[in-house]
Design a protein around this nucleic acid. Structure first.
Length: 418
RNA sequence: CGGGGUGUGGCGCAGUUGGCUAGCGCGCGGCGUUUGGGACGCUGAGGUCGUAGGUUCGAGUCCUAUCACCCCGACCA
């Protein structure tokens, strides 16, 4: 992909709109990653789109690894399905976006997909041989939040991965529940927040005693959790009581209070939805059984906001390598244009994704932009480096510069892996 | 949905007790000089002041309504 800044419409900004307060949105707007369409609704510009895709890809790989099959549900949903499970009423679920067909038929705009998933899969599930089934999608969700805030962290339209499991019994469900907990941790580890993300005991709703949240420590979080450092778990403030402590076999005094961002939540659903929608399976003896379900969410766009804000420094964004829209930010300064052109061609031929700042602008502005945009590795070509037959490489997190031989792609690769 | 606040060129802001042609910085176009940390000179384009009513000789400024946005709270992935 040719990504020369001189040809792209992307531009950085010095000022951010004054009505944007959340640090993640401010940074991403200034750096040219997103555009604010309205409160809680953002447009993903080319750079932002690539970040979103990269995060989604990490999630996708881990979901596939535990047997997930990706599909895409519809955003428009029929009212009847939700009436079956008594979730259509605004009294029950108050953040629906609802709309109507020309003939007056009411429709829901997807905010979650338990009912439609069960309904769609009912065509394919009859026997015990058809189970278990693990399906997921990565799709925009719409929720009519009374108050959008915190930039990408709480929008009205947001990208989410939701997986649904349909198992033969509690035991089979349990096994998958544990497996996906492990998969979630792999995801957070790959995104660079593994060490500050805790499996957290949270409210289980009506289906089970507890659900599991995945909470990442961050001052910008909306949740308060109590971390048990030794056991590497946490308890959401909402459910912190003697009973929970007893269930977990821990003491109140061992917990420390932290602020965190919910980056995932997994729920045991029992057979509420499958029963209500009349979807069962028959076993070897031709006996009818309920299907045990679970649902598993990860907010992709929220993660983007969190990562943007978490890794940023006073100069701008700092992306983890796996998430960065481009791995290398190549900058040409006067006298280094030819050297940079050549290197760009080489990088293009290899699979090292590179954004090339070939604009005719002052050095200070180009270097500041490179910092702001936050690619992991910056390479500068200038009169100085061209004369020496070297290029200057510096890693964004540290800023430490070193000279490497022109065209030494393996040195570049090595730096990216460090 | 309760409380608080803000709407003036693309962005950030100023605009006096109502007064004359609505300013400034950044950004943008042209020309020239510059070039390792957000360069400079000259020059130019761009706004019926959120919207709709009203008061007044006269409204960015006062009144009413309305819309949008932000913050705190409640709620939520």
């Amino acid at each position: 992909m040719d990504m020369r800044l001189s040809k792209s419409f992307i531009k950085t900004k010095k000022n951010t709109p004054k009505d944007e307060v959340a640090e993640n949105a401010k940074l991403l707007i200034r750096a040219g990653y997103i555009h604010k369409e309205m409160a809680g609704v953002y447009v993903y510009l080319p750079l932002g789109k690539r970040v979103l895709e990269n995060i989604a890809q990490v999630v996708r790989e881990e979901m596939n690894a535990v047997g997930g099959e990706e599909l895409q549900m519809s955003v428009l949903q029929p009212k009847e399905l939700w009436e079956t499970t008594d979730r259509w009423d605004d009294e029950k679920v108050d953040n629906w976006f609802k709309t109507k067909l020309k003939n007056g038929t009411e429709l829901g705009v997807g905010l979650t997909h338990e009912e439609p998933i069960v309904d769609a899969l009912s065509d394919y599930i009859n026997s015990y041989k058809d189970l278990p089934v693990y399906v997921y999608q990565i799709q925009s969700k719409f929720r009519n939040e009374v108050r959008a805030k915190s930039g990408l962290m709480r929008g009205r339209e947001f990208l989410m991965k939701d997986l649904y499991s349909l198992s033969r019994d509690e035991e089979e469900h349990e096994r998958f529940y544990e497996k996906i907990t492990t998969a979630y941790h792999s995801i957070y580890a790959r995104l660079g927040i593994g060490d500050i993300t805790y499996t957290t005991v949270a409210d289980g709703g009506i289906f089970s005693k507890y659900s599991r949240e995945f909470q990442t420590l961050s001052e910008v979080g909306e949740d308060t959790i109590y971390v048990h450092e030794k056991n590497e778990i946490a308890v959401n403030k909402e459910v912190l009581n003697d009973e929970v402590l007893a269930d977990l076999g821990i003491e109140r005094s061992e917990l420390t209070e932290e602020t965190a961002v919910e980056v995932g939540n997994i729920f045991p659903l029992g057979s509420k939805y499958s029963d209500a929608l009349g979807v069962f399976y028959t076993d070897e003896n031709d006996e009818k059984h309920s299907i045990v379900m679970g649902s598993y969410g990860i907010g992709i766009s929220r993660l983007m906001g969190l990562l943007a804000e978490h890794f940023a420094d006073e100069k701008g964004l700092v992306w983890p390598v796996d998430v960065a829209p481009f791995k290398v930010h190549l900058v040409s300064l006067p006298g280094g244009e030819n050297q940079a052109d050549q290197l760009y061609a080489q990088l293009e031929d290899s699979d090292i994704e590179t954004i090339y700042d070939d604009r005719d602008m002052s050095a200070g502005m180009k270097l500041a932009d490179a910092d702001l945009m936050g690619m992991p590795l910056r390479i500068v070509c200038s009169k100085r480096t061209a004369t020496e037959g070297k290029v200057e490489a510096s890693l964004r997190p540290t800023g430490n510069a070193e000279l490497i031989d022109t065209g030494d792609l393996s040195a570049i690769q090595k730096l990216l892996e460090s």
